[in-house]
Nucleic acid binder design. Structure first.
Lengths: 336, 336
DNA sequence: ATGAAAGCGCTAACAT
DNA sequence: ATGTTAGCGCTTTCAT
């Protein structure tokens, strides 16, 4: 049992000051005589004193820890966002508790409750929807929540994202102009806010502009996985589809390879545009024409916004407007 | 200021019991009369009481939080490991604070100190080496540390991994048997333990078995990125290399595409075997022949081991032997 | 500029 | 089975 812990008391005694003074030194409070400060600092170094963040958290009601809820850490899209979040969090001295909210919403509520129980100072939520119970949880939460890389049905929660509707419209219009009669839309669940109110409307708007009749069977729901994309290749070809806008890059890569393996030439006989702009898009052969977006920045800006909200002690309703970042479009080899 | 917090006191008063009883109920202690328990539970529900994990952590000296140090969250290899870790952590009711330790070791020490300051109950380290200062930090740490998906110079720290030396030897031998005279080894820094004491020796052993002279210029150091792999393609071809074992999949994908773009046919004129077994290996075209390994399990087993070490209150030196998981080999399209 | 003292919300002996 | 009482290690008034 050699694990004797050096506390603020040990330091105080050794430096002949009160614990309050040690606390002041540790926290950079200016009201300490330079000599005293130096003496305390010397003792801290000598004893290798490290403030206990848990005790600090209890006393100050701030943990300098945020919670990050992510659907799937192995999806490059979320990993890139997480990188942006982490960098800014580190910059502001925050740590992040990362939790996988298995796509099924039932666990998301538990995950979030647990995060609040741990007294996180804020939460970044990467999900496409918030069920009622979770919404309630967020509303009565004592700390701010920001949605990154998506948007949800809860209008009170600020989000950082791109204009998915416009991006989808541009991609689909591009495909339509290339004389494709049947352009598919491959997304996740149709019921999520991002798909229901952004991607599908964007898709329809493009069809409308091109005077093409909407065909419900051209919307394919998948699970943002490579495998599902791969399997859908055959089905799409059978339906006479000759082009597709795919929201997720893994699915797009799967679709591409599925087509190639079925001897359907991309882009000659089938054009693909993908939407998440991860590195996967340039690794596949042919490379994937894509909507481009600043993934890292989406995460970074979300984290910046969160720090702002966290320091606004007042319930001062800072502005709940979504922050829309610019997207682009890059032609690669999967389109003609 | 409506954010009134319900504490264990509030519940105790409302239920006409002492806080100790409430604590017992919350912690599932059996020494509570069923009726009392029900009454307390009812009040907890009514008041929507949630135990404050920070206060709990301070009093019990356990935070049910572990620290996970990861070099790059956007690298599929680490993301897969992290998934395994998270699943098991969740199963055991642990949360994980995930921190990116930018490859440069200088920050790793700060990251780890911070983790300890936050009183994590254990740490999973995913890195290839531990500099002296960090080693000292781990040694005097009050909580266990486990290395996942690699191994380090510090023999006192248990690791969960595959036999990198043997795996490398098998891959290189395979390449040598295909009549390749110049087989390159593309790894990270030659100085890391995993490369210096496992991959390079494995590479040499294979050469030795095949009676091929070791050529130092055939070892290429990179940074596990796609871009670097891509750039090295040209260099390798100029050196007359006709096959390579690449430890990281991103680099392997880069090398493959670099070769393809330079009109070098893989596998006809150049064979590639990759080593991390991420999904990337089956997404590239041609697909990549690989060492296979249970990535998810490496993370999961590491976390299981950590839980075991965390519950061993005694300094009981449980066994510090590395846990070696089985690896395999899968021929795909990048070899003949 | 410094110290004293009261918590923060809980766990964990120790009583009873 | 239940209550009492110390802390856990720190921040934060409030004095001085």
């Amino acid at each position: 049992m050699e694990k004797q812990s050096v506390t603020i008391y040990t330091v105080a005694r050794e430096a002949n000051v009160s614990m309050a003074t040690v606390s002041r030194v540790v926290n950079g409070n200016q009201n300490v005589k330079p000599e005293t400060r130096d003496r305390v600092l010397a003792v801290i170094k000598k004893l290798n004193y490290r403030p206990n963040a848990v005790a600090r958290g209890l006393a100050s009601k701030k943990t300098t820890t945020i919670g990050v809820v992510i659907p799937d850490i192995t999806n490059d899209y979320f990993a890139e966002l997480a990188l942006g979040i982490d960098d800014i969090a580190t910059m502001y001295k925050y740590n992040m508790i990362l939790t996988n909210s298995d796509a099924d919403g039932s666990s998301a509520i538990k995950v979030v409750q647990n995060l609040f129980a741990k007294q996180v100072d804020g939460v970044i939520f990467m999900g496409h929807d918030i069920e009622n119970e979770l919404q309630e949880e967020f509303n009565k939460a004592a700390v701010p929540v920001v949605v990154a890389g998506s948007l949800t049905n809860d209008k009170n929660i600020p989000s950082v994202r791109i204009d998915y509707e416009q991006a989808t419209k541009e991609a689909v219009s591009f495909l339509l102009k290339h004389n494709n009669k049947k352009v598919a839309l491959l997304i996740g669940s149709r019921q999520t806010t991002i798909n229901k109110f952004n991607r599908i409307p964007g898709y329809k708007a493009a069809l409308n502009d091109a005077h093409v009749q909407f065909d419900n069977s051209l919307i394919f729901e998948a699970d943002d996985s490579y495998e599902t994309g791969y399997k859908l290749a055959k089905k799409m070809v059978e339906q006479g589809v000759t082009a597709a806008f795919v929201s997720d890059d893994s699915s797009a890569a799967g679709l591409l390879n599925g087509l190639t393996d079925a001897h359907v030439n991309v882009p000659k006989d089938f054009e693909i545009i993908t939407g998440n702009d991860t590195k996967l898009a340039t690794i596949t052969r042919p490379t994937l024409t894509s909507i481009t977006q600043p993934l890292y920045d989406v995460g970074a800006v979300a984290m910046r916004l969160l720090t702002k909200l966290m320091s606004n002690d007042d319930d001062d309703e800072t502005e709940t407007h979504p922050i829309i970042l610019q997207h682009g479009f890059e032609e690669r080899q999967s389109t003609r």
